[in-house]
């Protein structure tokens, strides 16, 4: 290495530097720019470096910003909890009831719609939930309802669209955790006199908590930052944070307000991360 080093010697830094520089230039720097711009103001069509927290104050003063954040938090918590409750038994059935030979197939099948385009997936739910969509038409034709239900363009539709996506994601993370469990734990619990329920509650569930938490955190981050699902399915009754941020960028080109809102959203995610942090680790195998 030393002899060749004369023409090619960046040393070990040569390997790490490109990735570090890329991250610094296109992730850290834009974030700094955003933080700086959030302290400016848009006056008329100009950005003025006014160095004030006016945009942050706006968040607390203007009802609709605060409301959007609360809506986002509510929807995200509902989605995360519902998805876990739906996905856990599902992952458990795949890991326990499906013959081992078929488990991989059962899992691939369970997450196949994961690979539909994200934009198209929300649109597909519109087809299902619309006034003249498949659910309403079915219910009408069997006479269960007389008028179509207003399913689409509501918070319910947004939640359904989200839960659909995250059930697949959580099934993956929880399944991965369940199959890693050594059967010895359960045998030991049974030998010590625990019934199936208490074995599950005191042994299996705590041991699979990391899988649940990793999935829950991913769900939280992806859900609270998503623009497409509420925009396609949510209707006009309530807005979520990403929609409000996009409104600032799109219609008004108000980068300072958008930056401040984005940073507030990031703070919320960071707080969530700290809550989840004890379960999330990146380690080398």
């Amino acid at each position: 290495m030393a002899a060749r080093g004369q023409r090619f010697d960046l040393g070990p830094w040569g390997f790490v530097a490109p990735a570090l520089l890329w991250t610094a230039a296109f992730f850290v720097a834009p974030f700094v720019v955003m933080a700086v711009v959030s302290l400016w103001e848009r006056i008329g069509t100009d950005l003025v470096a006014s160095w004030s927290f006016a945009n942050y104050l706006k968040f607390f003063e203007r009802g609709h910003f605060l409301e959007a954040m609360l809506n986002s938090l509510e929807v995200t918590v509902i989605v995360t909890v519902t998805s876990i409750l739906l996905a856990y038994p599902f992952a458990w059935i795949i890991a326990e009831k499906v013959p081992p030979r078929l488990q991989r197939m059962a899992l691939v099948l369970a997450i196949l719609p994961f690979w539909t385009s994200y934009v198209v997936r929300s649109y597909s739910w519109l087809l299902v939930l619309a006034n003249n969509g498949i659910i309403n038409e079915t219910l009408l034709s069997i006479g269960l309802i007389a008028e179509p239900l207003d399913l689409a363009n509501s918070r319910t539709a947004t939640v359904i669209g989200f839960v659909h996506f995250f059930v697949m994601l959580l099934t993956l993370t929880i399944y991965a955790n369940l199959v890693q469990l050594s059967p010895n734990y359960r045998k030991a619990a049974a030998d010590l006199g625990a019934g199936p329920l208490s074995t599950f509650w005191f042994v299996v569930l705590p041991l699979t908590l990391p899988g649940i938490m990793v999935g829950a955190f991913l769900t939280f981050v992806l859900c609270i930052g998503d623009y497409i699902t509420p925009q396609v399915l949510g209707g006009n009754n309530e807005l979520l944070m990403p929609q409000v941020i996009m409104l600032q960028i799109g219609r008004r080109a108000d980068f300072p307000t958008a930056s401040a809102l984005a940073i507030l959203l990031m703070i919320v995610v960071t707080i969530a991360y700290l809550g989840f942090a004890r379960w999330i680790r990146l380690e080398r195998a």
């Binding site: 992730f27 955003m34 992806l222 930052g225 998503d226 623009y227 984005a262 990031m266």
Partner: peptide, 12 residues
């Protein structure tokens, strides 16, 4: 970090 925020930072 949300894609939205990464995209916005780059946009600005």
């Amino acid at each position: 970090v949300s894609y939205l925020i990464i995209g916005m930072g780059l946009l600005i």
